[in-house]
Amino acid sequence: MAKRSPRLKTLMAAALSLALVSTSCGTNSGAVGSDNSAGLPTTLVVATGDYKVPTSFLNKKGELDGLNVDLTRALGRRLGVEMKLVAVPFDAVIPGIQSGRFDTALFNVSDTPERRAVVDLVDYAPSGTVIVTRKNDRKGITANPLTLCGRTVAVKAGQTEFNILNKDVSPKCKETGEPAINFQTFKDDNGLEFAVETGRADAFLGGTTVTPYFVSRNSDTFEIVGKLPIALDPLGMPFAKGRDDLVGAVLAAWKEIWQSGEYERIAKKWSLQSIVPNDISLFTVNGGDKS
């Protein structure tokens, strides 16, 4: 049997007493914290990226750095285990967890129905979208999606928010006698930012896991006018099905980090306070369909 960290066993017991996973994972075998044959490792292999500032990237020393890296280390301290970070392409995360190559990942993975079908996800952050304009040039745009009516908005191809605005908001613009939203589509963030900076677009949409950091570093050019009131799937840490003991311990650790204020301190360091959950109830297992 693999060695258990004393700290991890304590969190497992807490997870069991609170029945954190039994009500969320349903069909997984084995009770949380049970002394099963698999045991719990003293080292967890955690997949992440190395290219996305400020969540996970290589710094000037060639070391992994960023919000996800700091949060992973905070989890390791709470669990009392070593967290071995491995940089991989995003599309390698779920297959790697299913095959046992990784124990989990902290890689901005959304808790979607498709992913819940093959892994369990410990939800740890809300996902959302902010509207960005040029500094002091909002043109009446606010967090209300209807203020985008008649405006030119830069979006990324396939972006969820684009589909929502195009299908739901633009028709409402017409119903109220306003022009529809004029969309300009780009392949990446650089295109969105350049379009707004040069005045080709009035605003662009960006995710709450990256955009606030970018704007804070370019505050003389851009400003965030608000967050779209559109519910998206939360971000989650994926685990292979059947690892209820580990899932329960990690869930308990996330709650401790949040309650202690450490989560907020780490997020503030990276100008990403918007991802910190407002309520402890967000921390759950497979909660994407409840968001």
Rank of each mutant, 00 (worst) to 15 (best):
V247P: 00
I131H: 05
G177I: 02
K9A: 11
E82R: 14
L16Y: 11
K61S: 15
G140N: 04
A125Q: 02
Q98Y: 11
F57P: 01
P54I: 00
L148V: 04
Q273L: 11
F162H: 07
S274T: 09
K227T: 13
V53R: 10
N59F: 02
V169K: 01
V109A: 14
V215S: 08
S260I: 13
A87Y: 01
N28T: 11
Y263R: 01
T208Q: 13
F204C: 02
L40Y: 10
T43D: 14
S17R: 07
T72D: 10
D245V: 13
E161H: 09
V45A: 15
P6I: 10
I280K: 10
D123N: 12
D168C: 13
K174I: 05
D245M: 10
E264A: 08
V93Q: 00
A87N: 04
F162M: 15
A105P: 02
V118I: 14
T142Y: 05
K9W: 06
G128R: 00
K61M: 13
L272C: 00
R243G: 02
K3S: 08
A252H: 04
L192F: 13
G76K: 00
K9T: 14
D279W: 15
A13P: 11
A180R: 06
R217C: 14
T284K: 02
A38M: 13
A252D: 07
A157L: 08
L272G: 01
T112F: 04
Q98F: 08
V210I: 13
D111Y: 09
P41D: 15
K60I: 12
P113Y: 12
S37I: 06
A31W: 12
A154C: 11
G76D: 06
E256P: 07
P229S: 12
I224P: 06
G177C: 06
P277V: 03
V153A: 00
M1Y: 12
Q184L: 09
I181W: 03
P229T: 04
K174S: 09
D65K: 15
Q259Y: 09
T208L: 14
V69F: 00
E197F: 09
N68G: 11
A267S: 03
R77S: 14
S271C: 09
A38V: 08
V196Y: 03
T152S: 04
T284M: 05
I181N: 04
I94G: 00
Y124D: 01
F183H: 06
G226W: 02
F183A: 03
K135W: 09
F102K: 02
P234L: 04
G49I: 06
D289P: 08
G287N: 05
S34E: 08
S29K: 10
V53W: 05
A19D: 11
S24K: 11
I275A: 04
K241Q: 05
N218P: 11
D103F: 01
A19H: 07
M1T: 13
D137Q: 09
T221F: 08
P229A: 15
Q259S: 14
V69L: 02
V122L: 01
A19M: 12
K255R: 09
V86L: 02
N278Q: 14
D123Q: 13
A195T: 07
N108S: 15
G248A: 03
L272S: 02
I141Y: 02
T142E: 06
I257S: 00
Q273K: 13
L64A: 09
N278G: 12
L282I: 08
G287H: 15
V46S: 01
F214S: 15
D35H: 14
G242T: 01
